[in-house]
């Protein structure tokens, strides 16, 4: 790092903390930023500042929002009897893009992973249970990721929720979109078949 002026190496250091950015990419981005016009750089810094100032977690569903409760939780057109549970806000966006789903959401902000020190306490499960208290919610759709951590989270939640008298379903995503059937392992295939629906 001694090769660069101190502000440049500091920028590279900060960029390297970002997910998916290695040393090479950090350097490339830093030098790109050095070359762009000042107003372009200011747009970036103010965008970062703005999300840090204005975006919070929705107190009901834990989605990122600029007003609390968020636009999903306050939208009267949405079906309030069903909640779709996802791991991350990005998963919510993916489901929303399909325009298939008109219910509410709940973001856990993670999945169970003992080796990473993530247990139920680290996930936003408590306020999910609170949402069931008034009895309006009839169905919970578990849309956690189709990997071992997502499956563990879904089955943990299913055990927790079923005694509360609510219908619990797991979305049929045994097979990742665009993947070859030939390469799906047996468990995945089995689940995809078991969860098939009529079209």
């Amino acid at each position: 790092m001694l090769d660069y002026a101190e502000p440049i190496s500091r920028l590279i250091d900060e960029l390297r903390r970002l997910p998916g950015i290695g040393h090479k990419s950090a350097q490339r981005i830093a030098f790109h930023l050095l070359r762009i016009p000042p107003e372009e750089a200011r747009r970036l810094t103010s965008a970062i500042e703005e999300v840090k100032e204005k975006i919070t977690l929705c107190s009901i569903c834990n989605n990122f929002t600029d007003r609390d409760p968020c636009r999903f939780c306050t939208n009267p057109a949405r079906d309030r009897s069903v909640i779709c549970v996802v791991e991350e806000p990005t998963n919510l966006v993916t489901i929303e893009k399909t325009r298939e789903y008109r219910g509410l959401y709940h973001v856990l902000h993670g999945a169970l992973s003992p080796i990473r020190g993530i247990g139920p306490e680290e996930l936003k499960i408590k306020n999910l249970l609170e949402r069931l208290r008034d009895g309006h919610v009839k169905e919970i759709i578990l849309a956690t990721n189709p990997n071992t951590e997502g499956e563990a989270t879904a089955s943990y939640l299913a055990r927790l929720l079923k005694p509360l008298g609510v219908t619990v379903t797991r979305i049929a995503m045994g097979l990742p979109v665009g993947s070859d059937l030939e390469f799906a392992d047996e468990v995945t295939m089995h689940k995809a078949l078991a969860n098939r629906r009529q079209i």
Binding site: G119, T148, A152, V187
Partner: peptide, 20 residues
């Protein structure tokens, strides 16, 4: 007991994959 609940969810998957 909260850990034992979790262990059971992992056991469920352990059975699926272990059988294969």
């Amino acid at each position: 007991n909260t850990l034992i609940d979790q262990i059971e969810t992992w056991n469920q998957q352990l059975i699926e994959y272990g059988t294969i």
